[in-house]
């Protein structure tokens, strides 16, 4: 136990701090994912329109997200808004904005792909039944799109949780930052604690993500049965 540094975890509030950090990471990524899915669906559908302006704007947006490291985006939203507009965003809110900005682009692209994969005849048979455009999207296109999106969005959630460690750059203390703090605070007394601590964090992340992937495979099975 000592060699693994687990005893370090049991000192004081260390374990609670770690769980707290994990909750911060999960809160940021889950809230961002929910917003990303909602905005991503709208953005993805908009992208299927053959309008030049829409195409150019969405292209630029997608490219910005693709090229820009998330850390730069965090700096822009957290510090940039203060520089330009004097806004003082809460660091966690800034993180959610950045992750949603990123997630919406990714979801949007996935949605666009899924929507354009739905055969033209599905729209036509819906129109032929007298459904209007909005009803067609609501009852026919979006439900089918969502089913196709489940495995892809789980992938996005996992990547988001992984990327939350970046938010330490704007002062948000999440699980990995807490881990570093604990390792550093004990570097004299327990120089080898790092391995055990990272292992613990890994297990905690796994426990947190496990239900998400269970839910995903349950939905996948339910919808393909």
């Amino acid at each position: 136990m000592q060699a693994l540094g687990i005893d370090v975890l049991l000192k004081g509030n260390n374990f609670i701090r770690l769980i707290d950090g994990l909750c911060t990471a999960l809160r940021i990524s889950l809230v961002s994912v929910i917003f990303s899915i909602v905005f991503g669906i709208v953005f993805g559908i908009v992208m299927t329109y053959k309008n030049t302006v829409i195409r150019v704007v969405s292209r630029v947006y997608l490219e910005i997200v693709r090229i820009m490291p998330q850390m730069v985006l965090l700096f822009i939203v957290f510090f940039g808004t203060t520089r330009m507009f004097g806004l003082n965003l809460d660091a966690e809110l800034a993180s959610i904005i950045v992750f949603t900005f990123w997630g919406t682009a990714e979801m949007g692209d996935l949605v666009r792909g899924a929507v354009s994969n739905i055969p033209k005849h599905q729209y036509e048979s819906s129109y032929a039944l007298g459904l209007n455009k909005a009803q067609t999207y609501f009852y026919i296109v979006i439900p089918q799109t969502l089913r196709r999106l489940i495995p892809l969005s789980i992938n996005l959630v996992t990547r988001m949780i992984k990327t939350t460690s970046l938010v330490m750059m704007i002062g948000v203390v999440e699980a990995l930052k807490v881990t570093q703090q604990i390792i550093e605070a004990n570097r004299m007394t327990a120089p080898n604690a790092a391995f055990g601590l990272y292992l613990t964090v890994f297990i905690l992340y796994f426990l947190a993500c496990w239900p998400i992937s269970l839910l995903a495979s349950y939905l996948e099975k339910k919808w393909s049965a």
Partner: peptide, 14 residues
Amino acid sequence: RQKIGMVFQSYELF
């Protein structure tokens, strides 16, 4: 369109 029923070659059930 509600007054016109159409059936397609490829069924197109949802």
